[in-house]
């Protein structure tokens, strides 16, 4: 895995000195702990990790790690992440953000990273609300929900993030929750180890604007581990069946892991580069391509 060999890293080695701006009680505090733990388990040194986010409360997360971070613009974590991965496929590339960042303003990108099978792990901290701008509807808000932009209740069905990525053919799809930090860390670790695009939805409650049912107590009441249900993560159709219950049940664990991961985009790029490198004119002779014979 590691270009520099396996090193012994502790979760604290991935924790930066920056103090989170999140509200006390926010689910994201546990998510960042889960990420520290997963990274320590993987054992890549922080400087070999690029961690990209968009804009939102949760998008502050790269700054709280010691990795190379990029807190970019709203909705564009994934385009930037794939540029990083293509420029240097040896890096461990993580992307993270909220449900609005990922499924609303940046919703158009996910499908394409999936079909390219970019070897990037994408973590969405799904809180069903826009927190940073003070509690407006998000793409995963339940229909009928009242917020400051839906005084009389939302008229829209929510996006189902799990079904969304499964339908596009993501090779690894999982869900985790702050109610189980250990399980979350394990799932993130597995997602990173999966060779290809991996998606982890984390139900991370908004303590300031979230509804009671979405807080940890509420989540505990509806959580159910996929392993306890005897779910076989190789079964994509069964995963899609279970994913339908998003919003009612909170299934924790791996929905789907492609048992035969196809080559990643990065693999194919390397293959093509190797194949064509012998045809390269020296750069200083590139204009020879235009010689009129």
């Amino acid at each position: 895995m590691s270009a520099t060999g396996t090193l012994d890293f502790q979760p604290k080695d991935y924790k930066s000195d920056l103090k989170p701006i999140w509200c006390p009680g926010c689910g994201d505090f546990s998510v960042v702990q889960g990420i520290y733990r997963a990274l320590a388990a993987i054992g890549r040194p922080p400087h070999e990790i690029a961690f990209v986010s968009g804009i939102g409360c949760s998008s502050r997360i790269p700054g709280y790690t010691t990795a190379y971070g990029f807190n970019s613009v709203h909705g564009r974590a994934l385009p930037i992440a794939q540029g990083i991965k293509l420029a240097n496929p040896d890096l461990l590339v993580l992307a993270a953000g909220g449900d609005g960042d990922g499924f609303s303003i940046g919703g158009g990108h996910i499908a394409h990273l999936i079909r390219r099978n970019m070897d990037i792990t994408y973590i969405v901290m799904d809180n069903q609300i826009y927190g940073l701008t003070k509690g407006q509807l998000s793409p995963t808000s339940q229909k009928g929900r009242t917020t400051c932009t839906s005084r009389y209740g939302s008229l829209e069905e929510p996006v189902n993030p799990l079904l969304y990525v499964l339908a596009y053919g993501a090779g690894f799809v999982a869900q985790a929750s702050p109610t189980d930090l250990v399980g979350m860390a394990a799932v993130i670790e597995e997602a990173i180890r999966y060779p290809g695009f991996a998606f982890v939805n984390i139900q991370s409650p908004c303590v300031t604007y979230g509804e009671e049912a979405q807080q940890i107590k509420g989540l505990k009441a509806i959580q159910e581990s996929l392993a306890s249900l005897g779910h076989n993560p190789a079964d994509r159709l069964a995963a899609m069946d279970l994913a339908q219950q998003y919003g009612e049940k909170m299934h924790l664990g791996v929905f789907y892991r492609n048992p035969e991961p196809p080559p990643t985009y990065g693999d194919l790029v390397k293959e093509r580069q190797a194949l064509l490198s012998k045809d390269a004119l020296p750069r200083e002779r590139i204009l020879d391509l235009f010689i009129k014979k």
Partner: peptide, 12 residues
């Protein structure tokens, strides 16, 4: 979370 308070036990 054996003896540690739940993450959402903290409040602003």
């Amino acid at each position: 979370d054996i003896e540690a308070p739940d993450y959402d036990a903290a409040r602003a």
